[in-house]
């Protein structure tokens, strides 16, 4: 009954997972490639940008050996357009996650890069680097944004206060949406909530509550559900009989 931890990941665990998101840095000094368990880091040569995991980027930033290039979606204009979309254009759904990267084939048609080929799938696609699409919130948006604001505030495209304000607005709007999503369970059967585009941290925050609501609805409706199922079973049995009869007729 009383588990020491709630189901799912705690915010600290989610933040730890977010540290493997790739971000773009501009190194300030030459650093040779480091051989790590997860693979080699790129050799850092000062004017050239490089992609490194968030944890390494923050470490280098702290040591003043690199500057972090914030992802385009963290730009105030991008955040504002997302807020606009969440508030005005679609006040129910969450803004969509970034589209999978695509490349232009000869002849002008775009095709999606085969995710399986390089072993990464949507939550782990490099969506926080400098060439990520703007206007879309990636899976780890809240964690990466907070970490960058806290430790690389001087690398932000605008004042850290402005970006933080916009982020808080966005988080509030989406939290309100998650809260009101529970009312979708009022109907029978066809009820459902779409969580497409919801970030990892928001899920960690609301998981226990949403599961509690769903469990409550399920418990309350268990009796009615059993009755309904019995009825369906009976109907199916009747229909099945008819079906068999017609089958026999066909056989004759």
């Amino acid at each position: 009954m009383a588990h020491p931890l709630p189901p799912g990941l705690t915010p600290a665990e989610v933040a730890f997972l977010a540290e493997m998101e790739m971000v773009t840095i501009v190194p300030r000094q030459r650093i040779e490639s480091i051989d790590l368990l997860g693979g080699k880091t790129p050799t850092l040569r000062p004017p050239h940008r490089a992609q490194v995991p968030l944890w390494l980027a923050l470490l280098l930033k702290k040591q003043n050996r690199a500057n972090i290039v914030p992802p385009p979606w963290l730009h105030p204009a991008s955040l504002q357009s997302i807020i606009q979309r969440e508030k005005v254009e679609d006040p129910v759904a969450f803004s969509p996650p970034p589209p999978p990267p695509s490349r232009i084939k000869i002849g002008g048609t775009a095709e999606r890069i085969n995710d399986a080929s390089d072993g990464v799938s949507p939550p782990f696609l490099p969506s926080c680097t400098a060439d990520a699409p703007s206007g879309f919130l990636p899976y780890h948006w809240q964690e990466v944004a907070e970490a960058l604001l806290a430790h690389a505030g001087d690398d932000m495209p605008a004042s850290a206060g402005e970006v933080r304000g916009l982020l808080r607005d966005l988080a509030e709007i989406r939290a309100a949406k998650l809260r009101s999503s529970s009312s979708a369970f009022e109907g029978f059967g066809d009820a459902g909530v779409s969580l497409t585009g919801v970030g990892a941290m928001e899920l960690a925050d609301n998981r226990a509550f949403l599961l509690g609501v769903i469990d409550g609805v399920r418990t309350l409706g268990a009796g009615a559900e059993a009755t309904r199922r019995e009825q369906e079973e009976e109907e199916r049995a009747e229909r099945g009989d008819e079906f068999n009869d017609s089958d026999e007729e066909m056989g004759i």
Binding site: P6, P11, M201, A204, D205, N206, A208, F209, L211
Partner: peptide, 14 residues
């Protein structure tokens, strides 16, 4: 309690 714990742990992390 569940909702409160979720919100609190997120806040603590931030």
């Amino acid at each position: 309690r569940k909702a409160h714990d979720g919100a609190r742990s997120t806040k603590q992390w931030i």
